[in-house]
């Protein structure tokens, strides 16, 4: 194994631990680090509210950020390799838009009558999460259907974009007829955040996300063959149809789960695979996939820390922070594409 890989395999986990600790220690409410440590070790803090803040809010939020970042980054990498298009991302296929639509239906149409849903096992936040999942999976199903009809990946990508536009169009119509407070609530969700997962919901989120990530790790060998294009890959024994389906399913799970729990999070899926490739200097998925996963976690945790506005008692919206890191990376990559190996 070369030195760069060894270095990254040491530095990235170290950075991850540091950022994770930072996310728990640093927040809108100032709590001394020794108290945070005390709380984590089960001690009694000076103020009872601190205990709640650390265990019920910061800890789940940090883990959510870590897994959401990894999920989005890996699904972005899968899309970029499958479509052999460095500018593909999980939102490109319309899967995020499908999740948005599901949420919009719940928040804008049923929002006022959530109480009527009280009899059902899901209401309020769980209803939103379920709706996002259903929406994402519905679009995923459509994409899977079209992927068996349309052989060309670029055409499939355009179909994904069109489905995304259709979903956005329906959301606009729903917005038009909805009351102001509902529209406001929906817009707030659309800003994205890592704090929507409660400690009770955390295990479910981590389970779904890890499942998707595990599936992605199983795809490393065919992903490398796909770098040569589908014909070469087929000649190397890759069963193209089945592999395409598995990659789409894996991306669908990762995107749907993340969007459902955190809202639509922009740029991490698009930019992190590029950061990972630039750090690693290779598009060999054997190292690239783990590095993308770790980098995604680190970037998401970094965003999570940057969201904290020290003077105020609230957090900046997540989607106000991610483009600050993501957009410059994408612009850098596009401008320097002639000198970047993996573009050629």
């Amino acid at each position: 194994m070369n030195r760069r890989i060894c270095l990254l395999y040491t530095l990235l986990p170290a950075a991850l631990v540091a950022l994770l600790a930072g996310s728990v220690v640093y927040g809108a409410v100032s709590i001394p680090p020794e108290s945070v440590l005390d709380i984590l070790l089960g001690g009694e803090p000076q103020r009872a509210s601190w205990r709640h803040i650390v265990l019920q809010s910061r800890l789940p939020q940090a883990f959510t950020a870590m897994f959401a970042g990894a999920s989005l980054a890996v699904s972005g990498l899968l899309m970029q390799t499958l479509f052999l298009n460095p500018l593909a991302g999980p939102s490109i296929l319309g899967i995020s838009d499908g999740a948005n639509l599901g949420v919009a239906v719940v928040m804008l149409c049923l929002g006022g009558s959530l109480s009527r849903l009280a009899d059902l096992p899901v209401s309020g936040y769980p209803a939103i999460i379920l709706a996002a999942f259903v929406g994402a999976c519905a679009v995923l199903g459509l994409i899977l259907y079209f992927s068996s009809k349309v052989k060309n990946n670029v055409m499939l990508l355009i179909i994904g974009l069109m489905i995304g536009y259709l979903a956005s169009s329906v959301i606009s119509i729903l917005n038009f007829y909805a009351s102001t407070d509902k529209v406001h609530a929906y817009v707030m969700w659309g800003l994205g955040n890592f704090s929507g997962v409660s400690l009770a919901q955390l295990p479910l989120f981590l389970l779904c996300s890890s499942g998707g990530l595990f599936l992605a790790v199983l795809l490393i060998k065919p992903l490398n063959a796909l770098l040569l294009g589908e014909l070469y890959a087929a000649n190397l024994g890759v069963r193209i149809r089945r592999t395409r389906m598995t990659i789409l399913l894996c991306t669908g799970i990762l995107t749907a789960v993340t969007t459902a729990f955190c809202g639509p999070v922009s740029f991490i899926g698009l930019a992190v695979p590029h950061i990972a490739r630039l750090l690693l200097g290779s598009s060999n998925h054997k190292a690239l996939l783990p590095v993308t996963l770790l980098t995604g976690s680190c970037i998401a945790l970094l965003c999570n820390i940057l969201m904290v506005t020290p003077s105020m008692n609230t957090l900046l919206p997540l989607n106000a922070v991610t483009p600050l890191i993501g957009a410059p990376v994408v612009i850098y990559v596009i401008i320097n594409r002639k000198n970047i190996h993996y573009f050629n």
Binding site: L84, N224, L227, L228, G229, L231, Y232, R277, G281, S282, S283, N284, I340, H341, Y342, F343, N344
Partner: peptide, 11 residues
């Protein structure tokens, strides 16, 4: 084949 590959980033 003559297909364009995207293998520029591997050795």
């Amino acid at each position: 084949l003559t297909d364009r590959t995207h293998a520029g980033g591997i050795t």
